[in-house]
Simulated scan of single mutants.
Amino acid sequence: MRETFPFVNLKAQYLAYQSELDAKISKVLSSSAFIMGEEVRLCEQSLAVFSGTRYAKTTSSGTTALLLALLALGIKPNDEVITSPFSFIAAAEMIAFIGAKPVFVDIDERTYHIDVHKIESAITPKTKAILPVSLFGMPCDMDSINSIASCYALPVIEDAAQSFGATYKQKRSCHLSTIGVTSFFPSKPLGCYGDGGAVFCDDEEIDHQITLLRHHGQSERYTHQIIGMNARLDSLQCAILNVKLQHFAEEIRLREEKARFYNENLQGVILPYIPKDRSSVYAQYSIRACNSSHSRQKIIESLHQKGVPIAVHYPLPLHLQECFAFLGYKKGDFPVSERVAEEIFSLPFSAFITQEEQIKVIESLNALMI
């Protein structure tokens, strides 16, 4: 059966802000200032204020934000960077892309984040950074991670592609470690209308390196201080973010409200666990239906037949991906990641999902839990 409503309702969001967005886009088109310029400056200023960091630099994607962060910290071939095997590929991919080695540490089964109790045993003389992924909208246990990192004089990069806007002990995600990075992919809690990302920090030298690296290593026009790349975010995307940022606090409130409605009405599922010291922006609303007699595949097929769209984040842990075969990991090395990957799936969710749509999801899923 055809899905009766979208998994993430981006069209409803656009229609809600259409006049503001259209006016901003028209202004950029009229100015012809498509690269850097005033909208970029305003966006970076607003992002820094929102996150509480001294510096924010926009980038062409969340993936390039990760790459820039690694390069700014001087990560080199044959270095090791500790990260999670249960995540989107970008963090581990960028570590490997520069010739360093992703060292995976299994996850905590309740939060799906890197297990802080297992990090220290993975540290070696080659370890140069820790890169936790703040998954599904909630920050990791950053105090514990930072404490371990401090003992070994290691920087920490928070991959906050899914948690921008969330808090940890009253501080915003992206302002919880040496460097924070995020993504503005359209379906993210704060998304633009294409690829986009940002790097956040308080350190002036790191920010200077990010500034150079994202613009061909250029300190001034045609003067290149270091080898860099083109990783800038364009003015149109920044203009769109400038509009959406004005509504972001209200969208976070709506996301929390709609997540609470799921929490209170779903039956027989393992819900996302959120410790009291942090909040979630629910980049995805992911559950595990372990109490059903049906397999995940059967549940997904049944929901699709009822017109309910479903996604799986993530079906195969990174250590079992073909591209990471060179690392020598095998099935069974990270049992929690493997078990969660076999059971987890995500329900339709956004600030604009209607209660009628949520009720349809709840009734359809609860019927399978009998």
Rank of each mutant, 00 (worst) to 15 (best):
G99P: 03
S51A: 15
G74W: 05
K76V: 03
I75T: 04
A90C: 03
F50P: 09
V105C: 13
S61A: 09
F86L: 15
L47W: 05
A48K: 01
A65V: 01
I95Q: 05
E93F: 14
A69F: 00
Y55P: 00
T111E: 14
F88K: 09
I89V: 12
G52R: 03
T83M: 13
E39C: 12
I98K: 02
A65Y: 01
G52I: 02
I89D: 14
V49D: 14
F86Q: 03
E93H: 14
P85G: 04
F104A: 12
A90H: 11
D106G: 05
S46V: 04
A92D: 09
S60L: 11
T111V: 09
T63E: 02
T64Q: 02
I89A: 07
P85T: 07
A65G: 14
F97H: 08
A92G: 06
A96F: 01
R54T: 15
S51K: 10
I107Q: 06
A65C: 07
F86N: 12
G62C: 12
I89R: 12
E44K: 01
F86S: 04
K101H: 11
I75P: 01
E39A: 15
A96I: 01
L68R: 00
L73A: 06
K57M: 13
S61H: 06
D79Y: 14
Y112P: 01
I107L: 10
E109F: 10
M36W: 07
A72Y: 02
I82F: 08
I35N: 07
T58W: 03
P77R: 13
D79E: 12
E38L: 14
V105R: 03
Q45W: 04
A65N: 01
P102W: 14
V40Q: 15
Y55W: 07
V105T: 11
T59G: 01
L70M: 01
P102E: 08
A72G: 10
V103G: 08
A91D: 02
S87V: 09
S61R: 06
F50H: 12
D79M: 10
A72Q: 03
E38R: 13
F86M: 07
K101Q: 15
E39R: 12
T59E: 00
A100C: 09
I75M: 00
F104D: 04
N78L: 11
T59C: 03
P85D: 11
